[in-house]
Amino acid sequence: MSRQMVRPGGRSTRVQAAVHAAVRELAAELGRDALTVPLVAQRAGVTPSTIYRRWGDLQELLSDVAVERLRPDTAPRDHGALAEDLAAWAEQFLDEMSSPSGRAYIRDALLGDPDGSNAGRCSAYAAEQIGVVLARAAGRGERTPDVETVIDLVVSPLMYRILFRPGGLTPAYAHRLVERVLAAR
């Protein structure tokens, strides 16, 4: 059964929560490389076949857990002006995604993503956060770029650098990207 066909709520939700918790706990205790489906199943209190039916293999399970961990917990803070809001968001995004655990989650999210749905979910998280920042600014009467422009001019270069050229990644770099997107509006 693919992830898209699983019924939400009830037993399915409990199984997902237990399996995700088992992955996080075991990874913290033993390290990610020591994880196996039988080990995760035992900790979660399910059979290995439950994991294989739902996720297919360990990499898809790790990918699902990673995508869940990459989802923001809260809305971006309101600093009162678009430039400050977007700079603070970009700095936090950079900090979280460029951390060792952030990079590991990105890697896992993409490695177990045969149909691209996890990448789409991660992209939607960023777009949603940016949308909140832009809507607030528009509500204050500020002129704003659109979400896709911010994705192209801020998020895309940050992700490229995080994944392929992590040297020199500083808050100042994120702020320069925000300055460029605001100058382009």
Rank of each mutant, 00 (worst) to 15 (best):
A124P: 02
A88F: 04
A81H: 13
L30F: 05
M1N: 14
W55S: 00
P166M: 04
P76Q: 07
D95T: 15
A22I: 03
G112W: 06
A126Q: 13
G10M: 08
T74I: 07
L163K: 12
I130D: 02
P38W: 07
V40H: 03
T149I: 08
I106L: 15
R71L: 08
G102K: 01
D57A: 11
I162C: 06
R140K: 06
D73Y: 08
R14E: 11
V46D: 01
V40C: 04
A119R: 15
R140E: 08
L62W: 03
G167F: 00
R32Q: 15
L158A: 06
A184V: 02
F164D: 09
R143I: 14
E142Y: 05
A81C: 12
S156K: 09
G139Y: 07
A18T: 01
I51D: 04
A104W: 00
V155G: 08
E142L: 06
Q92V: 12
Q59D: 11
A90T: 05
D95W: 14
Q42K: 10
A21Y: 01
R7E: 14
P100F: 01
W89H: 11
G131I: 02
V15G: 00
V6W: 06
G9W: 04
A172T: 12
L26G: 01
V46C: 07
D33S: 14
L70I: 02
A184Q: 11
M1G: 13
S98I: 03
L169Q: 00
G168V: 06
F164W: 09
L26V: 05
A83I: 09
S156T: 12
P8L: 14
E60M: 13
A21W: 01
D73K: 13
C122E: 10
A109T: 08
L134R: 06
M159Y: 09
D95K: 13
A83P: 04
V23G: 00
R143C: 12
I151M: 14
L35Y: 04
L182Y: 01
L111T: 14
I130Q: 02
Q129F: 04
L110N: 06
R140A: 10
Q129K: 06
A81R: 14
V155D: 06
V155S: 11
D73V: 09
A34C: 10
L111D: 11
L70G: 03
G112R: 00
A90S: 12
I151V: 14
A183C: 04
T170K: 05
H20E: 15
S99F: 03
V6D: 05
